[in-house]
Design a protein around this nucleic acid. Sequence first.
DNA 1: TTAAGGTTTAACCATTTAGTTAAATTTTTT
DNA 2: AAAAAATTTAACTAAATGGTTAAACCTTAA
Lengths: 211, 211
Amino acid sequence: MDESIKTDRLGAEDSTEQRIFEAARDIFIQKGMEGAKMQEIADRAGLNKALLHYYYRSKEKLFEMVARSIINRAIPVIRKTIESDEPLHQKIAGFIDFYINLINHNPFVPLFIVSEMNKHPDSFYEKIMPIGVPKPQIFLKQVEEAIERGEIKPIKPEHLLINVVSMCVFPFLGKPMLRIVLSMDSAELKQFYDERTEVVKQFVFAALRPD
Amino acid sequence: MDESIKTDRLGAEDSTEQRIFEAARDIFIQKGMEGAKMQEIADRAGLNKALLHYYYRSKEKLFEMVARSIINRAIPVIRKTIESDEPLHQKIAGFIDFYINLINHNPFVPLFIVSEMNKHPDSFYEKIMPIGVPKPQIFLKQVEEAIERGEIKPIKPEHLLINVVSMCVFPFLGKPMLRIVLSMDSAELKQFYDERTEVVKQFVFAALRPD
DNA sequence: TTAAGGTTTAACCATTTAGTTAAATTTTTT
DNA sequence: AAAAAATTTAACTAAATGGTTAAACCTTAA
Protein backbone atom coordinates (compact mmCIF):
# COMPACT_ATOMS: atom_id res chain seq x y z
CA MET A 1 0.00 0.00 0.00
CA ASP A 2 1.63 3.14 -1.18
CA GLU A 3 1.51 6.13 1.01
CA SER A 4 0.88 9.49 -0.51
CA ILE A 5 3.80 11.81 -0.38
CA LYS A 6 3.28 13.87 2.69
CA THR A 7 6.34 15.96 2.84
CA ASP A 8 7.58 18.27 5.41
CA ARG A 9 10.34 19.28 3.20
CA LEU A 10 10.50 18.79 -0.48
CA GLY A 11 12.13 15.53 -1.34
CA ALA A 12 11.69 13.98 2.07
CA GLU A 13 11.16 10.28 1.53
CA ASP A 14 8.48 8.36 3.31
CA SER A 15 10.94 6.94 5.78
CA THR A 16 10.06 5.45 9.11
CA GLU A 17 11.49 8.52 10.75
CA GLN A 18 9.20 10.68 8.70
CA ARG A 19 6.14 8.59 9.44
CA ILE A 20 6.83 8.83 13.14
CA PHE A 21 7.22 12.55 12.87
CA GLU A 22 3.96 12.99 11.04
CA ALA A 23 2.04 10.76 13.41
CA ALA A 24 3.52 12.66 16.34
CA ARG A 25 2.59 15.97 14.77
CA ASP A 26 -1.02 14.91 14.34
CA ILE A 27 -1.35 13.51 17.85
CA PHE A 28 0.50 16.33 19.61
CA ILE A 29 -1.57 18.93 17.79
CA GLN A 30 -4.75 17.17 18.73
CA LYS A 31 -3.98 16.25 22.33
CA GLY A 32 -1.07 18.37 23.46
CA MET A 33 2.15 17.24 25.08
CA GLU A 34 0.68 15.46 28.10
CA GLY A 35 -2.44 14.15 26.40
CA ALA A 36 -0.46 12.42 23.68
CA LYS A 37 0.80 8.90 24.42
CA MET A 38 3.83 7.37 22.78
CA GLN A 39 1.91 4.17 22.13
CA GLU A 40 -0.81 6.06 20.32
CA ILE A 41 1.75 7.80 18.15
CA ALA A 42 3.34 4.45 17.37
CA ASP A 43 -0.04 2.95 16.51
CA ARG A 44 -0.87 5.80 14.20
CA ALA A 45 2.46 5.44 12.47
CA GLY A 46 1.87 1.68 12.24
CA LEU A 47 5.03 0.92 14.20
CA ASN A 48 6.31 -0.26 17.51
CA LYS A 49 6.86 2.11 20.36
CA ALA A 50 10.56 1.37 20.64
CA LEU A 51 11.10 2.90 17.26
CA LEU A 52 10.03 6.27 18.47
CA HIS A 53 12.79 6.16 21.04
CA TYR A 54 15.25 4.80 18.52
CA TYR A 55 14.74 7.78 16.28
CA TYR A 56 13.83 10.54 18.67
CA ARG A 57 15.32 9.53 21.99
CA SER A 58 12.48 10.71 24.23
CA LYS A 59 8.97 12.07 24.18
CA GLU A 60 10.28 15.51 25.09
CA LYS A 61 12.71 15.53 22.20
CA LEU A 62 10.04 14.37 19.78
CA PHE A 63 7.64 17.01 20.97
CA GLU A 64 10.40 19.56 20.75
CA MET A 65 11.04 18.76 17.12
CA VAL A 66 7.37 18.81 16.23
CA ALA A 67 6.84 22.11 17.98
CA ARG A 68 9.88 23.60 16.34
CA SER A 69 8.78 22.49 12.91
CA ILE A 70 5.32 23.97 13.34
CA ILE A 71 6.68 27.24 14.61
CA ASN A 72 9.40 27.34 11.97
CA ARG A 73 6.81 27.15 9.30
CA ALA A 74 4.32 29.62 10.73
CA ILE A 75 6.53 32.44 11.95
CA PRO A 76 8.54 33.27 8.82
CA VAL A 77 5.46 33.83 6.69
CA ILE A 78 4.08 36.15 9.32
CA ARG A 79 7.37 37.98 9.41
CA LYS A 80 7.54 38.27 5.69
CA THR A 81 4.13 39.87 5.34
CA ILE A 82 4.39 42.12 8.35
CA GLU A 83 7.94 43.29 7.77
CA SER A 84 7.63 43.97 4.07
CA ASP A 85 7.55 47.57 2.93
CA GLU A 86 4.62 47.38 0.58
CA PRO A 87 2.10 50.20 0.82
CA LEU A 88 -0.21 49.84 3.82
CA HIS A 89 -3.37 48.83 2.04
CA GLN A 90 -1.65 46.19 0.00
CA LYS A 91 0.10 44.92 3.06
CA ILE A 92 -3.06 44.57 5.07
CA ALA A 93 -4.86 42.89 2.20
CA GLY A 94 -1.94 40.59 1.61
CA PHE A 95 -1.68 39.79 5.27
CA ILE A 96 -5.33 38.80 5.47
CA ASP A 97 -5.13 36.77 2.28
CA PHE A 98 -2.06 34.92 3.31
CA TYR A 99 -2.92 34.43 6.94
CA ILE A 100 -6.39 33.03 6.43
CA ASN A 101 -5.16 30.82 3.64
CA LEU A 102 -2.34 29.53 5.79
CA ILE A 103 -4.62 28.66 8.68
CA ASN A 104 -7.21 27.18 6.35
CA HIS A 105 -4.61 24.62 5.36
CA ASN A 106 -3.45 24.05 8.94
CA PRO A 107 -6.55 24.67 10.98
CA PHE A 108 -5.21 23.19 14.23
CA VAL A 109 -1.94 25.04 14.28
CA PRO A 110 -3.19 28.24 15.94
CA LEU A 111 -4.58 26.39 18.94
CA PHE A 112 -1.35 24.47 19.27
CA ILE A 113 0.69 27.65 19.23
CA VAL A 114 -1.62 29.50 21.58
CA SER A 115 -1.64 26.61 24.05
CA GLU A 116 2.11 26.14 23.85
CA MET A 117 2.69 29.80 24.38
CA ASN A 118 0.50 29.89 27.43
CA LYS A 119 1.94 26.80 29.06
CA HIS A 120 5.59 27.38 28.30
CA PRO A 121 6.11 30.99 27.21
CA ASP A 122 9.85 30.81 27.85
CA SER A 123 10.59 27.67 25.89
CA PHE A 124 8.40 29.05 23.14
CA TYR A 125 10.39 32.24 23.08
CA GLU A 126 13.59 30.25 22.80
CA LYS A 127 12.14 28.43 19.84
CA ILE A 128 11.27 31.51 17.84
CA MET A 129 14.40 33.41 18.82
CA PRO A 130 16.58 31.66 16.22
CA ILE A 131 14.08 32.32 13.45
CA GLY A 132 13.61 35.87 14.55
CA VAL A 133 10.64 37.45 16.27
CA PRO A 134 8.46 39.32 13.79
CA LYS A 135 9.21 43.00 14.08
CA PRO A 136 6.08 45.05 13.49
CA GLN A 137 7.81 48.43 13.67
CA ILE A 138 7.55 49.10 9.97
CA PHE A 139 3.87 48.31 10.02
CA LEU A 140 3.23 50.46 13.07
CA LYS A 141 5.03 53.36 11.50
CA GLN A 142 3.18 52.97 8.22
CA VAL A 143 -0.09 53.20 10.09
CA GLU A 144 0.96 56.33 11.91
CA GLU A 145 2.03 57.96 8.69
CA ALA A 146 -1.18 57.03 6.93
CA ILE A 147 -3.09 58.58 9.81
CA GLU A 148 -1.07 61.78 9.62
CA ARG A 149 -1.73 61.99 5.91
CA GLY A 150 -5.41 61.53 6.66
CA GLU A 151 -5.60 58.40 4.57
CA ILE A 152 -7.09 56.36 7.35
CA LYS A 153 -9.04 57.08 10.47
CA PRO A 154 -6.95 57.44 13.66
CA ILE A 155 -6.36 54.24 15.60
CA LYS A 156 -3.50 53.01 17.71
CA PRO A 157 -1.46 50.89 15.31
CA GLU A 158 -1.10 48.07 17.84
CA HIS A 159 -4.85 47.79 18.13
CA LEU A 160 -5.29 47.71 14.38
CA LEU A 161 -2.77 44.92 14.10
CA ILE A 162 -4.45 42.90 16.82
CA ASN A 163 -7.87 43.50 15.30
CA VAL A 164 -6.75 42.11 11.99
CA VAL A 165 -5.01 39.12 13.50
CA SER A 166 -7.99 38.44 15.75
CA MET A 167 -10.45 38.30 12.90
CA CYS A 168 -8.16 36.03 10.91
CA VAL A 169 -7.25 33.58 13.64
CA PHE A 170 -10.11 33.37 16.09
CA PRO A 171 -12.75 31.91 13.78
CA PHE A 172 -10.57 28.82 13.48
CA LEU A 173 -9.97 28.52 17.21
CA GLY A 174 -13.68 28.84 17.76
CA LYS A 175 -14.76 26.46 15.03
CA PRO A 176 -16.62 24.05 17.33
CA MET A 177 -18.34 27.06 18.85
CA LEU A 178 -19.48 28.24 15.43
CA ARG A 179 -20.86 24.81 14.69
CA ILE A 180 -22.97 24.88 17.80
CA VAL A 181 -24.00 28.51 18.14
CA LEU A 182 -24.64 29.19 14.49
CA SER A 183 -25.67 25.56 13.92
CA MET A 184 -23.74 25.21 10.71
CA ASP A 185 -23.05 21.93 8.99
CA SER A 186 -19.78 21.15 7.26
CA ALA A 187 -20.81 22.64 3.96
CA GLU A 188 -21.97 25.87 5.56
CA LEU A 189 -18.79 26.07 7.57
CA LYS A 190 -16.67 25.63 4.47
CA GLN A 191 -18.52 28.40 2.74
CA PHE A 192 -18.18 30.60 5.79
CA TYR A 193 -14.42 30.17 5.83
CA ASP A 194 -14.24 30.74 2.10
CA GLU A 195 -16.04 34.06 2.50
CA ARG A 196 -13.87 35.08 5.37
CA THR A 197 -10.98 36.65 3.45
CA GLU A 198 -13.15 39.09 1.57
CA VAL A 199 -15.34 39.88 4.54
CA VAL A 200 -12.41 40.71 6.81
CA LYS A 201 -10.79 42.89 4.18
CA GLN A 202 -13.96 44.85 3.60
CA PHE A 203 -14.58 45.16 7.30
CA VAL A 204 -11.11 46.45 8.06
CA PHE A 205 -11.00 48.90 5.18
CA ALA A 206 -14.46 50.16 6.00
CA ALA A 207 -13.39 50.73 9.59
CA LEU A 208 -10.30 52.60 8.46
CA ARG A 209 -11.93 54.84 5.89
CA PRO A 210 -11.69 58.43 7.05
CA ASP A 211 -14.88 60.45 7.43
CA MET B 1 -25.09 15.59 57.68
CA ASP B 2 -25.96 17.81 54.85
CA GLU B 3 -23.23 19.43 52.94
CA SER B 4 -22.69 23.11 52.86
CA ILE B 5 -24.25 24.84 49.96
CA LYS B 6 -22.08 23.97 47.04
CA THR B 7 -21.34 27.37 45.94
CA ASP B 8 -19.58 28.81 43.13
CA ARG B 9 -20.48 32.18 44.42
CA LEU B 10 -19.02 34.74 46.69
CA GLY B 11 -19.67 34.25 50.34
CA ALA B 12 -18.61 30.66 50.07
CA GLU B 13 -17.00 29.57 53.28
CA ASP B 14 -13.51 28.33 53.14
CA SER B 15 -14.46 24.68 53.49
CA THR B 16 -12.13 21.90 52.53
CA GLU B 17 -14.37 20.99 49.66
CA GLN B 18 -14.25 24.53 48.40
CA ARG B 19 -10.50 24.78 48.74
CA ILE B 20 -10.08 21.64 46.71
CA PHE B 21 -12.40 22.96 44.06
CA GLU B 22 -10.54 26.23 43.75
CA ALA B 23 -7.15 24.59 43.64
CA ALA B 24 -8.44 22.21 40.98
CA ARG B 25 -9.87 25.08 38.98
CA ASP B 26 -6.55 26.91 39.00
CA ILE B 27 -4.51 23.88 38.05
CA PHE B 28 -6.90 22.55 35.43
CA ILE B 29 -7.14 25.94 33.78
CA GLN B 30 -3.39 26.26 33.71
CA LYS B 31 -2.44 22.73 32.66
CA GLY B 32 -5.51 21.05 31.24
CA MET B 33 -7.03 17.74 32.21
CA GLU B 34 -4.00 15.52 31.52
CA GLY B 35 -1.35 18.03 32.55
CA ALA B 36 -2.88 18.49 35.99
CA LYS B 37 -1.88 16.02 38.69
CA MET B 38 -4.03 15.19 41.68
CA GLN B 39 -1.04 15.56 43.98
CA GLU B 40 -0.36 19.03 42.70
CA ILE B 41 -3.96 20.01 43.28
CA ALA B 42 -3.78 18.60 46.79
CA ASP B 43 -0.57 20.50 47.47
CA ARG B 44 -2.03 23.74 46.25
CA ALA B 45 -5.07 23.22 48.46
CA GLY B 46 -2.75 22.37 51.36
CA LEU B 47 -4.28 18.93 51.83
CA ASN B 48 -3.68 15.28 51.26
CA LYS B 49 -4.48 13.65 47.99
CA ALA B 50 -6.98 11.21 49.47
CA LEU B 51 -9.23 14.09 50.32
CA LEU B 52 -9.73 14.93 46.71
CA HIS B 53 -11.13 11.47 46.19
CA TYR B 54 -13.12 11.67 49.39
CA TYR B 55 -14.96 14.72 48.12
CA TYR B 56 -14.90 14.32 44.38
CA ARG B 57 -14.58 10.60 43.79
CA SER B 58 -12.24 10.75 40.79
CA LYS B 59 -10.14 13.10 38.72
CA GLU B 60 -12.67 12.90 35.93
CA LYS B 61 -15.50 13.92 38.22
CA LEU B 62 -13.50 16.76 39.67
CA PHE B 63 -12.59 18.00 36.23
CA GLU B 64 -16.18 17.64 35.19
CA MET B 65 -17.37 19.86 38.01
CA VAL B 66 -14.73 22.46 37.36
CA ALA B 67 -15.47 22.51 33.66
CA ARG B 68 -19.17 22.72 34.29
CA SER B 69 -18.77 25.58 36.73
CA ILE B 70 -16.64 27.56 34.32
CA ILE B 71 -19.04 26.99 31.47
CA ASN B 72 -22.05 27.66 33.65
CA ARG B 73 -20.70 31.02 34.47
CA ALA B 74 -19.55 32.06 31.02
CA ILE B 75 -22.42 30.93 28.81
CA PRO B 76 -25.40 32.61 30.49
CA VAL B 77 -23.90 36.08 30.28
CA ILE B 78 -23.21 35.54 26.63
CA ARG B 79 -26.77 34.37 26.15
CA LYS B 80 -28.17 37.29 28.03
CA THR B 81 -26.39 39.88 25.93
CA ILE B 82 -26.88 38.17 22.61
CA GLU B 83 -30.49 37.19 23.09
CA SER B 84 -31.73 40.47 24.51
CA ASP B 85 -33.90 42.64 22.31
CA GLU B 86 -32.20 45.94 22.88
CA PRO B 87 -31.59 48.04 19.78
CA LEU B 88 -28.68 46.77 17.72
CA HIS B 89 -26.17 49.48 18.50
CA GLN B 90 -26.77 49.25 22.22
CA LYS B 91 -26.56 45.52 22.05
CA ILE B 92 -23.24 45.49 20.26
CA ALA B 93 -21.81 48.10 22.59
CA GLY B 94 -23.10 46.23 25.62
CA PHE B 95 -21.79 42.96 24.30
CA ILE B 96 -18.31 44.37 23.85
CA ASP B 97 -18.37 46.06 27.26
CA PHE B 98 -19.53 43.00 29.04
CA TYR B 99 -17.47 40.47 27.18
CA ILE B 100 -14.14 42.20 27.50
CA ASN B 101 -14.81 42.97 31.12
CA LEU B 102 -15.73 39.36 31.81
CA ILE B 103 -12.58 38.02 30.21
CA ASN B 104 -10.45 40.69 31.84
CA HIS B 105 -11.49 39.21 35.16
CA ASN B 106 -11.03 35.62 34.00
CA PRO B 107 -8.24 35.85 31.48
CA PHE B 108 -7.56 32.11 31.26
CA VAL B 109 -11.13 31.01 30.78
CA PRO B 110 -11.30 31.48 27.00
CA LEU B 111 -8.32 29.23 26.38
CA PHE B 112 -9.79 26.61 28.67
CA ILE B 113 -13.10 26.69 26.83
CA VAL B 114 -11.51 26.70 23.40
CA SER B 115 -9.23 23.79 24.29
CA GLU B 116 -12.04 21.82 25.90
CA MET B 117 -14.26 22.37 22.91
CA ASN B 118 -11.62 21.18 20.51
CA LYS B 119 -10.67 18.09 22.47
CA HIS B 120 -14.14 16.97 23.52
CA PRO B 121 -16.76 18.80 21.45
CA ASP B 122 -19.44 16.28 22.37
CA SER B 123 -19.00 16.33 26.13
CA PHE B 124 -18.80 20.10 25.90
CA TYR B 125 -22.06 20.19 24.06
CA GLU B 126 -23.67 18.05 26.72
CA LYS B 127 -22.44 20.49 29.34
CA ILE B 128 -23.98 23.56 27.76
CA MET B 129 -27.17 21.80 26.70
CA PRO B 130 -28.77 22.10 30.14
CA ILE B 131 -27.96 25.80 30.37
CA GLY B 132 -29.12 26.40 26.87
CA VAL B 133 -27.07 27.13 23.80
CA PRO B 134 -27.02 30.85 23.05
CA LYS B 135 -29.47 31.51 20.26
CA PRO B 136 -28.23 34.30 18.03
CA GLN B 137 -31.33 34.43 15.81
CA ILE B 138 -32.58 37.67 17.27
CA PHE B 139 -29.23 39.29 16.75
CA LEU B 140 -28.90 37.99 13.20
CA LYS B 141 -32.35 39.28 12.36
CA GLN B 142 -31.66 42.67 13.89
CA VAL B 143 -28.60 42.99 11.70
CA GLU B 144 -30.53 42.10 8.58
CA GLU B 145 -33.23 44.62 9.39
CA ALA B 146 -30.70 47.35 10.11
CA ILE B 147 -29.12 46.63 6.75
CA GLU B 148 -32.48 46.84 4.98
CA ARG B 149 -33.19 50.16 6.63
CA GLY B 150 -29.80 51.34 5.47
CA GLU B 151 -28.63 51.99 9.01
CA ILE B 152 -25.52 49.89 8.59
CA LYS B 153 -23.42 48.71 5.72
CA PRO B 154 -24.30 45.28 4.33
CA ILE B 155 -22.50 42.36 5.96
CA LYS B 156 -23.49 38.78 6.61
CA PRO B 157 -24.74 38.85 10.20
CA GLU B 158 -22.77 35.74 11.11
CA HIS B 159 -19.54 37.37 10.04
CA LEU B 160 -20.31 40.48 12.02
CA LEU B 161 -20.93 38.44 15.12
CA ILE B 162 -17.71 36.50 14.70
CA ASN B 163 -15.76 39.69 14.01
CA VAL B 164 -16.94 41.19 17.27
CA VAL B 165 -16.30 38.08 19.30
CA SER B 166 -12.89 37.64 17.69
CA MET B 167 -11.73 41.11 18.62
CA CYS B 168 -12.96 40.67 22.18
CA VAL B 169 -11.56 37.23 22.86
CA PHE B 170 -8.44 36.75 20.81
CA PRO B 171 -6.27 39.42 22.41
CA PHE B 172 -6.48 37.45 25.64
CA LEU B 173 -5.67 34.14 24.00
CA GLY B 174 -2.72 35.76 22.34
CA LYS B 175 -1.44 37.62 25.35
CA PRO B 176 2.00 35.97 25.40
CA MET B 177 2.26 36.71 21.70
CA LEU B 178 1.50 40.38 22.30
CA ARG B 179 4.17 40.51 24.95
CA ILE B 180 6.77 39.22 22.56
CA VAL B 181 5.79 40.73 19.24
CA LEU B 182 4.83 44.16 20.52
CA SER B 183 7.38 43.90 23.32
CA MET B 184 5.04 45.27 25.94
CA ASP B 185 5.71 45.12 29.65
CA SER B 186 2.99 44.49 32.22
CA ALA B 187 2.03 48.13 32.55
CA GLU B 188 1.73 48.59 28.81
CA LEU B 189 -0.29 45.41 28.52
CA LYS B 190 -2.67 46.57 31.21
CA GLN B 191 -3.20 49.85 29.44
CA PHE B 192 -3.69 48.04 26.16
CA TYR B 193 -6.43 45.91 27.61
CA ASP B 194 -8.02 48.92 29.27
CA GLU B 195 -8.21 50.69 25.94
CA ARG B 196 -9.59 47.65 24.22
CA THR B 197 -13.29 48.18 24.92
CA GLU B 198 -13.41 51.63 23.38
CA VAL B 199 -11.20 50.73 20.47
CA VAL B 200 -13.28 47.72 19.48
CA LYS B 201 -16.51 49.67 19.72
CA GLN B 202 -15.18 52.46 17.54
CA PHE B 203 -13.73 50.00 15.07
CA VAL B 204 -16.94 48.04 14.72
CA PHE B 205 -19.19 51.06 14.41
CA ALA B 206 -16.85 52.67 11.93
CA ALA B 207 -16.89 49.51 9.84
CA LEU B 208 -20.69 49.42 9.95
CA ARG B 209 -21.34 53.05 9.12
CA PRO B 210 -23.04 53.25 5.73
CA ASP B 211 -21.44 55.30 2.97
C1' DT C 1 26.18 -17.61 0.26
C1' DT C 2 27.21 -15.11 3.97
C1' DA C 3 28.59 -11.55 6.91
C1' DA C 4 27.68 -6.76 8.27
C1' DG C 5 24.81 -3.01 8.83
C1' DG C 6 20.91 -0.93 9.67
C1' DT C 7 16.01 -1.75 11.00
C1' DT C 8 12.26 -3.73 13.64
C1' DT C 9 10.19 -6.21 17.31
C1' DA C 10 8.50 -8.37 21.82
C1' DA C 11 9.37 -8.54 26.34
C1' DC C 12 10.80 -6.27 30.13
C1' DC C 13 11.87 -2.49 33.82
C1' DA C 14 11.20 1.74 36.55
C1' DT C 15 8.48 5.49 37.56
C1' DT C 16 4.52 8.02 37.88
C1' DT C 17 -0.04 8.51 39.15
C1' DA C 18 -5.03 7.63 40.04
C1' DG C 19 -7.40 5.58 43.41
C1' DT C 20 -8.16 2.69 48.15
C1' DT C 21 -8.18 1.73 52.93
C1' DA C 22 -7.82 1.48 57.67
C1' DA C 23 -6.47 3.89 61.34
C1' DA C 24 -5.74 8.36 63.77
C1' DT C 25 -7.50 12.75 64.88
C1' DT C 26 -10.78 16.29 65.47
C1' DT C 27 -15.45 17.89 66.04
C1' DT C 28 -20.08 17.36 67.46
C1' DT C 29 -23.69 15.46 70.18
C1' DT C 30 -25.50 13.46 74.23
C1' DA D 1 -16.81 13.67 79.80
C1' DA D 2 -17.89 9.89 76.76
C1' DA D 3 -19.69 8.22 72.60
C1' DA D 4 -20.57 8.99 67.93
C1' DA D 5 -19.78 11.11 63.77
C1' DA D 6 -17.16 13.61 60.68
C1' DT D 7 -12.71 14.73 59.00
C1' DT D 8 -7.89 13.92 57.92
C1' DT D 9 -3.85 11.27 57.17
C1' DA D 10 -0.03 7.87 55.75
C1' DA D 11 0.74 3.88 53.57
C1' DC D 12 -0.60 0.96 50.09
C1' DT D 13 -2.25 -1.12 45.35
C1' DA D 14 -3.01 -1.41 40.51
C1' DA D 15 -2.63 0.41 36.17
C1' DA D 16 -0.61 3.26 32.78
C1' DT D 17 3.22 4.90 30.61
C1' DG D 18 7.97 6.38 29.29
C1' DG D 19 11.97 4.18 28.36
C1' DT D 20 15.47 -0.05 27.65
C1' DT D 21 17.40 -4.14 25.63
C1' DA D 22 18.61 -8.22 23.38
C1' DA D 23 17.40 -10.76 19.85
C1' DA D 24 15.19 -11.37 15.20
C1' DC D 25 14.77 -9.70 10.71
C1' DC D 26 15.72 -7.81 6.55
C1' DT D 27 18.68 -5.61 2.84
C1' DT D 28 22.98 -5.14 0.59
C1' DA D 29 27.36 -6.02 -1.06
C1' DA D 30 31.66 -8.87 -1.13
